[in-house]
Nucleic acid binder design. Structure first.
Lengths: 234, 234
DNA sequence: CCAAAAGTGTTAGGCTTACACCCATGC
DNA sequence: GCATGGGTGTAAGCCTAACACTTTTGG
């Protein structure tokens, strides 16, 4: 490839990852944060990030950053926003393209997380973060709320099998409000995207709650028939 | 400012502008396209764009590109998406951050448009464009449709005073479907964001149609009271 | 048998949609 | 007086929201 653009200004381009996880036990939405390992702002809390290399796509860079931290591949990853103010980074002019990822926390190797500099922090009790990372998170969180209303992405945060109570707890954690149990169940069941399993979850109650699975192929059919996912329920 | 990041790969960063305009006479949504003035792909149809300078914010760059083309300032401009595949530009590795702008076509200096290389092209009859510009447009157009449903941005495309027929025509042009006249009027009127003027538009009909104005301060009140703009109507 | 969590239906009201005729005016 | 486009109201049905009791079972 000829390089036609040699005389032009080049810029550092980074990616930052807003990595959401959900703790099924304490019913809180969490973010995976790290302490920065280089200057400036060494040792401060930051979003996991990295610089986009010459020969690497932006999405690819975001996935690399996530992989280096978690060893996870094939994760739900969506671009959020490009942050381009000249002075947003005190170390130099860096344009960062933020992404958000949804991961199943139970798939993380606990040994690795222990050894790593990464920590889960509740979305409602975030530490002070460098630069504009707090704004980046706020935006990604808003986008997640919008997304989970109209796309079946919540399942990315849950185990393969989950109970309806767990699914509702997740939605309540993200929306940060209570949802009516009967209305929630009616709506999710009526979309016919879940399959009820024979097995019950028996740890949190004596009666036990049936496990369900999300069936992606049913969602494809559902879309093909012109229906729209919707869990924007009171 | 110390430069901490000197050893890292830098990349060319561009902005591309998807500039929407609306022709009130032929009731079509248009895009302002240009012919490229440098290699590669010299002379081909392209989105207006430019490279982000070292000392210039990304949004600022998008506004500069728009200003250089139209002499317009204070235009509605929203970031769309960062396009970061390594091979998206055949002239070299360029990450481009697309934006969409909404402009009032009647505010453009006709002499300038005549002299310029820019041309309005109907959204439904676009020429072949370079690189991934068609995908960039498709995405921006989808975003515009979503946005105009839930935010009063349509007025950015209309003159200060407009008739309800003109407003509906605009929505029909963007949605690319017919809307029921009574339902549309009921909904927009019920939001109480418009002020009916005494004056009538008398060029398109004998009876004449009342002009209305959008009152931004009413929209601020409306939001403060917890209402949501909605013109997603059949 | 009791405590704790799972599971289940109905109704009222609001919002959306569908639909057709009268009005005003220039020619 | 007629052709042209502007302007108006109502009713049916669907969807949403609100709401409380029964079931199951381990201890």
């Amino acid at each position: 490839m000829t390089n036609y653009y040699e005389v032009l200004d080049k810029n550092l381009v980074a990616v930052d990852c807003v990595i959401f996880g959900y703790d099924i036990s304490d019913k809180e939405l969490k973010l995976l944060l790290v302490k920065r390992k280089f200057e400036p702002e060494y040792g401060k809390w930051t979003l996991p990030g990295g610089f986009v290399k010459k020969d690497e796509g932006v999405l690819e860079a975001a996935c690399r950053v996530l992989y280096q931290l978690t060893s996870l591949k094939d994760v739900y990853m969506e671009q959020s926003y490009a942050w381009g103010d000249v002075d947003r980074d005190s170390g130099g002019r860096v344009i960062t393209i933020s992404h958000f990822a949804l991961i199943k926390t139970h798939e993380l190797d606990p040994v690795m997380i222990e050894a790593s500099v990464a920590h889960w922090r509740s979305i409602s009790r975030l530490p002070k973060l460098i630069f504009d990372h707090r704004r980046i998170i706020d935006r990604a969180y808003k986008e997640l709320i919008d997304r989970i209303k109209v796309k079946p992405v919540g399942f990315e945060l849950l185990p393969e099998k989950f109970t309806l109570v767990q699914l509702q707890d997740l939605y309540e954690a993200i929306y940060q409000r209570k949802i009516d149990k009967r209305n929630f169940r009616k709506k999710i069941i009526s979309m016919n995207l879940l399959e009820k399993m024979d097995e019950k979850e028996k740890e949190t109650s004596k009666k036990g709650a049936y496990y369900y699975r999300f069936i992606p192929s049913r969602y494809e059919d559902f879309k093909r028939q012109g229906f729209y996912f919707n869990l924007d329920v009171q």
